[in-house]
Structures are given as structure tokens and as C-alpha cells.
Write a protein that binds this DNA or RNA. Sequence first.
DNA 1: CGACCCTTTGAGGCAAATCAACTTTGGTGG
DNA 2: CCACCAAAGTTGATTTGCCTCAAAGGGTCG
Lengths: 273, 273
Amino acid sequence: MVYSHSLAPTPYTTPQRCLDCTRTVHSLCTNLTEQEIAHIARFSHRTHLPHGSLLIEEGSPAIASFTILSGTVRVFKSLADGRRQIIGFIDAGQFLNGGVRCDEANNDNGTYTFGAETINTVHFCRFQHNNFNPLLKDFPHLGRVLLTSLTAHITKAQEQMLLLGRKTSREKIASFLLHRLTLPLTEKNTTDSSASDSSFPLFLPMSRVDIADYLGLTVETVSRTMSTFRREGIITSSGHHTLRVTNIAALRALANGQKTSAETSQSAFKANV
Amino acid sequence: MVYSHSLAPTPYTTPQRCLDCTRTVHSLCTNLTEQEIAHIARFSHRTHLPHGSLLIEEGSPAIASFTILSGTVRVFKSLADGRRQIIGFIDAGQFLNGGVRCDEANNDNGTYTFGAETINTVHFCRFQHNNFNPLLKDFPHLGRVLLTSLTAHITKAQEQMLLLGRKTSREKIASFLLHRLTLPLTEKNTTDSSASDSSFPLFLPMSRVDIADYLGLTVETVSRTMSTFRREGIITSSGHHTLRVTNIAALRALANGQKTSAETSQSAFKANV
DNA sequence: CGACCCTTTGAGGCAAATCAACTTTGGTGG
DNA sequence: CCACCAAAGTTGATTTGCCTCAAAGGGTCG
């Protein structure tokens, strides 16, 4: 499934359409001035891909970056024997940095150090680097917006390192659910945010394998842990991708590595068997 | 061990001294113009701390960033019960970003999301954020230099996530040794870079506990794995912090997750016992 | 020169991986 | 609309790589 095959005709997005977009999608562009948008609009273009499409091929020349307008992308790195680590999920409104360059001397953009694939239908806006990079010099404000975005990414990456290196499977899943819950509400989540007190709906677009590869676990462990949470009354679910967090306090305690009442009650549960 | 107690008198560095520094220490400043240096010099200052000093306290207000001039700093995050994950080691020439802000609206610099401690005597240059941030607007070039630095950090962080989530202990140690070997040569490494063919000297300033907390392992596993490498002839060592890589090909293969001849010979070794 | 800390080595245990069915889901075509 | 089928998810049994607990060397610095 190669990216270009399914590209719809790609008309250049008009400035006007870009401005419209910034009103409906909260993204990097939202923070830009009209003048900046007008310039970017001249060489960005908007398109979409079905689920399971290759957006970025690990190791190929890094020529573009993307803003995700709807849907979710998985970003990953692989080892020689096929082991995969998902670096992150890029959701609607987020920026997928394919390696924007800012050192003027260097024209070589290098290669992508990671792969990216769609996990559902994804609408996105594509920025060619050779057009984008010069703008950073003309519009310093754009650079600062990007800088803020990168700083946030680094903070998130550091939290993920703590998770991968030092958390148990229970703590990993708890952290993951909490993180997905605190995302800017997506279409799916907003449909039913009439949360009864202390119960929160959560839509997980990715598969269990993806969750496992994101948390450094196996599918089986992910599945078992979520079943345990269900048994403990921390979550309930209706369908594989739709669930509801019923005890967010327990998740918070777990995510921070504290002993939880849920764990106590789990011991109690075991004792009863 | 609080940072301020051991601070020597802190005279503002004169522009001239800063310019001298850029010639001897390869750092962020190396890429700045003389004009930029002159401005930064007015509120940066240079000092040093002994080993084991707290440079940044996790959770305290984020007021400064640092350039490390010599020595090594460990950056880490902790869980409630004391489990620790080392996010990275900052060596001479590297920038320790304490959270530089670039969104003009926000005057709140937040709090440090990580801690930082010296693992040996560290000379460094300190930049107060409230002075530094405005410069980003006056000197866009500075922002681009920073952007390049952040991008490199993100790439490194992503590699570390692959390591933490998907590599075995052998692969983790191999990757770590390789990474330390490819660092810009430090004082210690250069002293004996008269490497006999395919043998490379390597100085590891940090303790085994630090290595363990960096790789998501325990001290015992780090020690055992390095002993195995020694037995397999991949490394030799003289003292805990000084070793020599004698089979870099084996390390490279391991780090990429490939079966190695060393592993084969390990099986052979076991068979002989 | 001795005390302390760091490192190494050994023995045993456990959390998560692996291997192996079985069940549910969702998409497709008759 | 239902039957079918492949893909995804769950559950169980067993194995294993790394952790935990324990104790014996080595280095270093007062």
C-alpha cells in the first residue's frame, strides 16, 4: 500500500481554504498569522488516505512533514528482525514532523528515522520541506511555534521513557488510558461526553497489537491487563475500541506508581477465589 | 546537596570570555554570531559544581537552562516509590534545555519535568530564562540553532524508546557502549585514541547503577552482561570506568537486533562447559 | 590503612513472554 | 439479511529473561 497510488488529485489549497481549516482544526496553523498562512498555503496541500496506508517509509528521503486533520497515525521504529516500537500516535490537530531543517547551510534533508502508517481514514495536510524550510527564515514566528511544539514532544517522549523503562504492565496500561483520556477531545469522544459522574467515555482507534507495541508489551499482556481492569471495575467496555473509565482515581494512582485501593481490592478478590 | 551552596562568586561573563569559550568548547554557542554572543554574555554566567550535586530539582520552577562545558550530567525522572529512569547523559558541549519558552503570551515558565545531577566535576554556563526567552524574538537565528538541537534530541529519544521497549539486555548494553563510543571525543577518550586496529578505548564516567537506570535494567544485569561481553572477547577492561571495545562489529550487530557470531561463539562456549 | 561504596557473582523467584486454543468481531458476497 | 470467513481479541498453560535477595571481592579516599 504505497502512499502515492491512492492520492486524489492534489490541487493547491487556496489561502482561503487554509484559513477555513484553522477555524475548524486546532493545529500548528491555528497559531500562525494570516500572512504566514497565505505563504504556506501556496505549497501545502490537503488529501486523505484509507486505513493501513504507508505515509512515511522508514529510511527513505525526508521530504515532507504533515498536519493531521482527522484520524490517527502510528509512528514507529523497527529492528532488523521485525520487532517494532511505536513511538507515538499522531491524532487530529497534531503535527507529524518529518524532519524540518533549519540549519541553512545544509540542503540535505536526510532520511526519515521512523515510519508512519494510518490506522484509520486520515485527512492531512502535507508540507514539502524544500518549500517549508526557507519560510523559517522569513517568518521567525513560525519557528517559535514549531519550537513550542517540539518542546512538548520532548516532554512527552521523556514521560514515555519512564514508562517503558520502569513501569509494570498495569501501570503502563493505566498511563496509556489516562493519556488518551486527556487528549483534546476527538469526534468519537465528544459524541458521548455526557459522562455520568466520574465515568468517562474513551475511544481507542488502534488495535491491541498497536497498544502493545506502544507500551513495550505483548498483545496477550495488554488483553489480560485490560480484562483485569474490567473485573476490578476500573473500566467497562462495549466493543474492542469503545470503553468507559469508571474509576479514574485508580488509574491516576497506578500511573504514578502508587499502591492503589484497586490493587488492595484485587488482593481481596484473589482471596475470595 | 543544593546547587546554590557551592556556587563560586558568579561574575557576569564578558563577551570576550564567551568568544574564547566558543573556540574551545563546541556547543550551541559555537553556531551563534558574535553579535548574538555579545547579547547572551550579558546575563549568562559560568561556574562549576562537584560530583553528586543537584543542578535541577524535579518539579521546581523552571528558571534556567545550561550549556555543559566539561563533565557529565544525568537527567532523570522518578516515580512515587523512588524508581528512577535516566532520560539521558549530558556531556561536554551539549545543551541542557530546562524548558526554554517561545510562546510570547505565556510568562509562566512552568516547572522542571525532570531532575539533573552532576556525576563528576561539571563546568557549565547558566542562562536565566527570563533573559533568554526575549532574545529568541530579537535573534531568530538563535531559535533555528535551538530548533536543530531539539530535533536531534527527539531523534535520540525515539531511538531510546525502541531500546527500552523492544531490546534485550545484551542489545541494550551493546547499543549503550556504541553510543558512548560515537560521542564527540571527550578528554578521557582522546588520551588514548591510538587504537590498535579495530580496538577502541572508552571511558564511562557514570556508575553501573546509572547505566542500569538509563537502560531500564538492574545493576546486577548490567554487571553480568558486561562480564559476559568480557568473556566473549567483545570488550576488555581496566578499572570500572575504563574499557576497550575489541569487537565493534559484534556490538553493531547486537545493537540492531541481529544474531551475531559472538552469540554463536557464546553457545559454543556454553557447550564447552 | 581501614571503612565505605561500588561492583561482581550466585541462587532462587516472579512478571511478562511464548506457545496454543478458542471466541468474537466485522466485512463480504451470495 | 444472513452465512461465511478472515482478522482481531481473549484466555489458558508453560517457559524464561530479568529481577530480587544475599554475600563476597575491589577501589578509592579520607
